[in-house]
Nucleic acid binder design. Sequence first.
DNA 1: GCGACAG
DNA 2: ATCTTGTCGC
Length: 224
Amino acid sequence: MTNAMPPWDGNVAKARRLQTELAAQVRLVDDYPPLKHVAGVDVGFEESGAVTRAAAVLIDAQTMAPVAEVVARQATRMPYIPGLLSFRELPALLQALSELPQVPDLVFVDGHGVAHPRRLGIAAHLGVISGLPTIGVGKSILVGVHEEVGPHRGDRQPLEYKGEVIGCVLRSKDRIRPLIVSPGHRVSMATAPELVLAFGRKYRLPEPTRLADRLASQRGTVRR
DNA sequence: GCGACAG
DNA sequence: ATCTTGTCGC
């Protein structure tokens, strides 16, 4: 792991400069290893936002069955600022990831990869500082425009920003609102959507993110 | 200057 | 993200 997360000092301009530096380290090439285990990570909040709750789920790439689950809690350090999401959620996410019994071969992150103003969404940021292959799976667009996407699972359209393709809008399920998929690190622009389709089928979200999402938001658990 | 704006 | 029940549709 290269850098750790710098403490939040309220300096937005400085944070943006750091993103630009780290974005230069992103590698959009498929050099991830054979997939034995993949992980899904997501963040939720407790105590009206005072506590950040990060969840990591390790999944067997063959059976798609969960092998391990981890929940890490940390005091929330900064507010949500569009474009700077990783500075708020990465600390807890890194802790949860480090507590998994096995290092995953690929990580699905809830949020964007390079589909970001400075090409460093939370998935790309996590990839660069952990060195792990990552893919960003978002539910809505931060930046970029695209043409209408076909109605069936697998249909897609490139997401463009300032004349460049930064990701793809992918229909993961017939007639269901498409996902915004973009590579984070060590995965190519073309492979990212294929992996999302490969790890999902009956739900809108791919299994790794769906399970992490449930864990992070307290849902799949006892709640009344 | 006026909006837009991942989770 | 979070506050929240039932309800419409595949």
